[in-house]
Amino acid sequence: MASGVKPRVKVPKTAAAGDAITIKSLISHKMESGQRKDKEGNLIPRSIINRFTVEFNGQSVLDMAMEPAISTNPYVQFEALVPEAGDFVFTWYDDDGSVYDTTKSIAIG
């Protein structure tokens, strides 16, 4: 498990049913590209977040495949529909097998 990996997501607390909302997501992760070399000249192996998914009450909003060209501390902004109250589940998958996730609830109002 990479250390210091922390998600940060902005979801409004409430929305009207059927609204489109903007979601901003960030996760602290080095995104080691596999292109860099260490002091001895050896290639530092790739170690990145390779996939980011967003689901709402079990339905897919976004499923994003990431490659090493995504910057350190990957940021993704997108729009989601809010048909009803529920939970947004954000999941990030690491090359090393770790999975990071966070859940944000939204109410209708």
Binding site: V54, S60, L62, A69, I70, S71, Q77, E79
Partner: peptide, 16 residues
């Protein structure tokens, strides 16, 4: 890949 609950088929990110 946009799912059924994507409000728009758009996204922003930051790249190298």
């Amino acid at each position: 890949n946009f799912g059924p609950l994507a409000a728009s088929q758009s996204a922003s990110t930051r790249i190298r």
